[in-house]
Write a protein that binds this DNA or RNA. Structure first.
Lengths: 219, 219
DNA sequence: TAGATTGTTAATCGATTAACAATC
DNA sequence: TAGATTGTTAATCGATTAACAATC
């Protein structure tokens, strides 16, 4: 007999996890517009998904609605925020002081949501000691030392692919459990370390393929 | 009776498309290391997928291997490059001259693969007229005019979400058929325009959730 | 030739959608 | 109360994996 799928928060499918930030974004917008209640049907329509999927997704985490009424926007936003971990703070450091690092440090939404960039590391002597948006650029050779003295929740790798694995190893050795990786490389890390990749280059290739496909379709 | 799934290049599932850049990356690495041949089993192992999936994916586009031998790395790389459209050039413009734009313009791999940034547009008078990596920043009010006079394959939106839809509309009106969108907003475009989103903020929220999940698992 | 490996068909698995009893 | 809408179970759909005949 087929075993029933268990709905522990531990087993949430990745596809569901990836939609959580979306829910958060739309609920935030609704809350800003002072919308008090919304049904799964209405919210799903706005997001371009089905109401079934929305309710199925939420059911992984609990029951947040009310039959015949729908969801209180404020309450649901609170729940989703809690699920995403936005009720706490995250200390972050960035490895690689290039333009991408600058862009990330300057993104105001991060700080507002509890994500703090505490330091930037680089190996270029011209950059070390300078500040970016109030954050000091330190010499990467002091990275291990820094990790011993500070709590770092998230390590962000914006350095070139050639040094990314080495940096990741240093982060892992220093006890960092989450890596946000922008380098075009598959990082090897222990099973208890989570890696989230932002593969910008690959996204462009996907676009290029889909553009070609579209052009072919036309002709 | 269930209809057989047609394998036209037009119907390639998005999941397959998203893996194509991966294949390209690994094959490029192999070619650089002068590896001449590889079996689906070996390549799949390197990539952390199954050999079945690799062969299944490739079969959407043709037959590139040889029984009992495997694949010639160079040939397969060539085929994948062609599939991705890397045998041609793409003219691109960037809308929004912030740090992210700087990062993209400076990324050497793009130019090498045929992706050319021809112009950057912004509305900030302090930036207009300046150059970034040899690319001039123009006033966004001349965007429509520019689109009439130049062929633009890909429009890149790095501007804030508040103006992203308006910029997308201008691109579409100017005949641009592909948009690479970094703004945290769902762009509404006609069906014949392809949009590829890079949702950096949402990626961080996904990481934050997975970190929490991991921490919970531990305790 | 014999061994290896492809391309493809069939089986399995998982995710999405539909349906509906429960109930506000 | 009657209508609306949830949470959940069942049905469908699509993607991944397994198996194997074809063949280099």
């Amino acid at each position: 007999m087929p075993r029933k799928k268990k709905k522990s928060p531990d087993a949430v499918p990745l596809a569901v996890i990836k939609r959580l930030p979306l829910y958060h974004r739309y609920l935030t917008m609704l809350a800003q517009n002072d919308v008090e209640r919304i049904s799964s049907r209405e919210l799903a329509a706005k997001m371009g998904i089905t109401a079934s999927q929305l309710r199925q997704d939420l059911s992984w985490f609990g029951s947040f609605g009310q039959q015949g009424y729908g969801y209180r926007v404020k309450d649901l936003l609170g729940e989703v925020s809690k699920i995403l971990g936005l009720d706490r703070q995250f200390q972050m450091i960035i490895l690689g002081a290039g333009n991408l690092a600058r862009a990330l440090v300057s993104y105001p939404n991060f700080r507002r949501r509890g994500f703090y960039v505490e330091a930037i590391f680089d190996s270029n002597p011209d950059l070390i000691g300078k500040q970016v948006n109030g954050v000091t650029i330190k010499d990467v050779k002091y990275l291990s030392e820094y990790l011993q003295q500070h709590t770092v929740d998230i390590g962000i790798i914006t350095a070139p692919a050639s040094v990314a694995q080495k940096l990741a190893d240093t982060l892992v050795a220093g006890g960092v459990k989450a890596i946000w990786n922008f380098a075009p490389i598959h990082l090897k890390v222990p099973r208890d370390v989570v890696v989230e990749n932002v593969q910008i280059g690959e996204s462009l290739l996907t676009l290029s393929f889909r553009l070609q496909q579209q052009e072919r379709r036309k002709s």
